[in-house]
Amino acid sequence: MNPVNYLYLSALLFTIGASGVLIRRNAIVLFMCVELMLNASNLALVTFSRMHGTLDGQIIAFFTMVVAAAEVVVGLAIIVSIFRTRHSASVDDSNLMKL
C-alpha cells in the first residue's frame, strides 16, 4: 500500500481536529479534538519514518505521546476545576481575562 495514503489520512484527521477545536464550545470535545490533531501528527511522523527508513519519526511520536499524556492530566484537571466552580464546560463562558 502506498504510504502517501497514510499522509492523506493524517491530513484529514488533522483538519477534522482543527476545525473541531475552532468550532465546538464544549471543553471536553475541544480536548478530544486536540488529541485528534496530536494523533494525526503522530501518524504522519510514523509514516515519514517508514518512507525514509529511519527511526527518528517513531521516536518523536513516542515523545509526543508522553507529552500528550501529561497534557491530558493537566488539561482535564483544569476543565474539571472550571466545571466545578462555574457549572459549565463551555469555553466561551470563561472569558474573565479579556480587557
Binding site: A18, V21, L22, I23, R25, V91, D92, S94, N95, L96, M97, K98, L99
Partner: peptide, 17 residues
Amino acid sequence: LRRVQNGFVRSYALSMF
C-alpha cells in the same frame, strides 16, 4: 489592536491556527 484580546479561547485558537 487590543480589541483582538476578546477573551474567547476559540478566537485565540483561530489566530494561532
